[in-house]
Design a protein around this nucleic acid. Structure first.
Length: 442
RNA sequence: GUCCCCAUCGUCUAGAGGCCUAGGACACCAGCCUUUCACGUUGGUAACGCGGGUUCGAAUCCCGCUGGGGACGCCA
């Protein structure tokens, strides 16, 4: 049997770190097993789904290097779902419900206030044929629920081990809306069956769904896939992933100069027993991947950790990998000079301004800076200019160490820290250097 | 409220009764290197949520408590 996994996002927004983790784990599992990955766009909810989001999801995955072997879109498969629904109806597993959403909401609140689980009370099951006919005659279209069989539902979860649910604790799920459109619960199972999905790996927010879906798989006569539910990630404070931490879109991170491998390294290791370290490529991640390394704790995702990994990546990133994203005019020499001081690619712009100006110099001691300026050699500048110049300044003023170098750095860059001046000075050039040492903005 | 899950250094975790005066990685601190940052290197600080039990012995098993999370949608 071919190992086949799927990543099934709903195109209701951009991909964020939480989504990507699901995509990555499925991708890694498929690759490790020599299997295939299906990208399925779960867009049965027409109101919330947007085609542009689907396109963006594909673009984001492609940028990350997470390719797929097959592609499907649920909105293309409505006829197939209708066929399955007809079968379920004739098998007596679907029953019509005429309650309005408001009515159901009220029932839930009532149950909750009485200390009862807010599951559907199956009132519709008690409707007589005459009552159903009457309701239908009034023009009320019913939603169709799947009648769950009572009893225990068990499966062996790749991450959680043996799991079991009592069907009595679950609500009969609506499978078809009054307008005839199937709900995710149904479409997902039909697709998993039709595309021969062998493993379903998703967040733990789906465990109860899995119990319901197992009955659906069995009812539809198909093989039940292997399931795995990993715990959801929290932000650094242990709270639900928010915009601030983690939920920012991949698109934004990318625009900010966060590299794919930094994101991938973090997400592949977070919550596993492997150390969270920058890994060189996806192949390494595949080699190291083992679903058994995932724990059941709820890991915290700290954006500072992402920055740490990205900074490490930046420090060794070749010019060719970034040249197109650098400010116009930025050269390889510039990149090599500043990359060790970057956290995100977008930081390069700040140093570009330090090189090209305008920079407001910090003149700590005008006399010393004037003396140094007088000794600045003529152009051309090269890699040795800095050391020969500072040696001359040292000889003339008797200064050394921090007293010698920090005032010069302040005057030349306006900052107290930054890339090595030996490499920066030739980029700044004599004209700007002289202007800044004179106290001018340049 | 009901059902399910979780609880070890700041963080991710190892630990399946004695091998644990609890190991690793990252972060942090200090030394070395260094004009800054970074890199490298050496060393260091730092954790079993609480209370009962079982046992000769518990981070490990059981119960309770506390704390956290998920689910309970005509969303996915």
């Amino acid at each position: 049997m071919t190992v086949r996994l799927r990543f099934a996002p709903s195109p209701t927004g951009r991909l964020h770190l939480g989504n990507i983790r699901t995509a990555l784990v499925n991708w890694l599992y498929a690759r490790k097993a020599g299997g295939e990955l299906l990208l399925r766009i779960d867009d049965t909810d027409a109101e919330r789904s947007k085609p542009e989001h689907a396109a963006a999801i594909e673009a984001d995955l492609t940028w990350l290097g997470l390719g797929w072997d097959q592609f499907a879109r649920q909105s293309d498969r409505m006829a197939r779902y209708a066929e399955v629904v007809a079968g379920l109806k004739s098998a007596g597993r679907l029953y019509p419900c005429f309650e309005s959403p408001e009515e159901l909401e009220l029932k839930r609140k009532l149950a909750l206030s009485r200390g009862r689980p807010p599951i559907y009370d199956r009132a519709a099951l008690k409707l007589s044929a005459a009552e159903i006919a009457a309701l239908t005659a009034q023009g009320i279209a019913p939603a169709w629920r799947f009648k769950l069989e009572p009893g225990a539902i068990r499966w062996h979860d790749l991450i959680r081990g043996d799991v079991h649910f009592e069907a009595e604790h679950l609500s009969d799920p609506v499978l078809v809306r009054p307008d005839g459109v199937p709900v995710y619960m149904l479409a997902s199972v039909v697709d998993d069956l039709d595309f021969a999905v062998s493993h379903v790996i998703r967040g733990e927010d789906h465990v109860a769904n899995t119990a319901v879906q197992i009955q659906l798989f069995e009812t539809l006569g198909g093989p039940v896939p292997v399931f795995g539910h990993f715990s959801l990630i929290a932000d650094a404070a242990g709270e639900k992933l928010s915009k601030r931490a983690g939920a920012s879109s991949i698109e934004d991170l990318r625009a900010d100069g966060v590299e794919a491998m930094a994101i991938l390294s973090l997400l592949a290791k977070l919550g596993t027993s492997d150390p969270i370290e920058l890994r060189p490529d996806l192949a390494t991640l595949v080699a190291e991947f083992d679903i058994a390394k995932f724990g059941r704790n709820r890991p915290k995702l700290d954006m500072a950790e992402l920055d740490l990994l990205n900074a490490k990546l930046m420090h060794a990133l070749p010019y060719a990998a970034v040249s197109s994203r650098l400010p116009a005019g930025a050269t390889e020499a510039f990149w090599l000079a500043v990359r060790a001081n970057l956290t995100r690619g977008s930081d390069a712009g700040d140093w570009w301004q330090v090189v090209t100006g305008p920079v407001t110099p910090l003149i700590d001691e005008p006399e010393f800076i004037a003396a140094a300026a007088a000794l600045l050699p003529p152009e051309p500048f090269d890699a040795t200019t800095w050391s020969s110049w500072t040696a001359a300044v040292k000889a003339a003023t008797g200064r050394k160490g921090k007293d010698l170098f920090l005032p010069l750095r302040h005057a030349l860059t306006g900052r107290g820290h930054g890339p090595e001046l030996a490499t920066l000075l030739p980029l700044i050039g004599r004209e700007r250097a002289m202007a800044r040492m004179g106290g001018g903005v340049a």
